[in-house]
Amino acid sequence: MKVSKLFFVTLISALSFMAICAAESKLLFAEDKGLTIAREADRRDEGFGDSEEVFTMTLVNEHGSSVKRRMRVRTLERHNDGDWSLSIFDEPADVKGMALLTYSHGIDPDDQWLYMPALKRVKRIASNNKSGAFMGSEFSFEDFSSTNDIRKYTYKYLRNEQFAGMDCFVSEWVPAYEHSGYKRMIVWHDTLEYRVLKIDYYNRGDKFYKTLLLKEYKQFLGKYWRSMRMEMQNHLENRSTILTYDKYRFRLGLTERDFDQNALKRSN
C-alpha cells in the first residue's frame, strides 16, 4: 500500500513536472523560432551595400480625396550599427529640397538632422519622434527605420498560415526600443523567401490600429527582394497611404561622404 501511494505521488509529480516543462519548452520554442525567422530574413538581406529608391506616396483621407508626395531615399548598409539613410523630398513643391539624414542605432535612439533649403539651415532634431506621422502619411518614422538590429524587437512564433497563396510564418513582434507607437505587431513572412507580406499593428492601448500589405515583390541582384507597392491602412481613422516604387538601384558606390551633413545640404 505504502509503496503504491509513494509511487502514485511520484507519478503525479513527474507528470506535472513534464507538463510544466512542455509548456515552458513550447514557449521557448515559440520565442526561439520567432527569433530564428527574423534572423533568417535579416541574413537574406545582408550585403546589399547601398541603394537608392524613388517612390510616390499617395495619401488618401477619410473622404477619399488624395494627395501625392514624391521622394528619394538613399541607404548605406552598416555592419556594426543601424543603416544610414538620406531622404530627399521632391514633391509637394513647397518642401522640394528638404531632406532628412538618419543614422539609425537599432535599439538606441537614432541621430537625425533635417535640412530646410529656404533657410539653408541644418537642424538636429529630437530623437524621440518614432511614432509621429511621416509627412502626414499613415506611416510612422519607426516604420521606415532600419530593422537590421535584431535586438529592436522580441519575437514569438505563433503559427503557420496561408496568405496571398503562400505558406507563411506568423509571428508576434514586440518593440524593445523606447517611444514606439506600437504595443505589438503581427508579421507574416513567406516560408520560401522570408519576405514580409503583411504586418498588423496594435497601438499602445493594444487596439487594432493599422495593416501594411507589401505587394509586387521584385528580386534585385539575383538575391534581394523588394516590395514595389506597399499599402498602409489605418483602421481607426479610415485613412490609407500607398507607396509605389518607380525604381530601385543597388551598389551605386555610395560612401559615408554621401551621408554627411554636407551631402544633406546638397540635396536637390
Partner: peptide
C-alpha cells in the same frame, strides 16, 4: 532649450 512632446494623445501632433 526645446522639449518636444511627440504624438500627444496619439493624435499625431507634436
Amino acid at each position: 532649450f526645446e522639449y518636444t512632446f511627440e504624438n500627444i494623445a496619439l493624435s499625431g501632433t507634436d
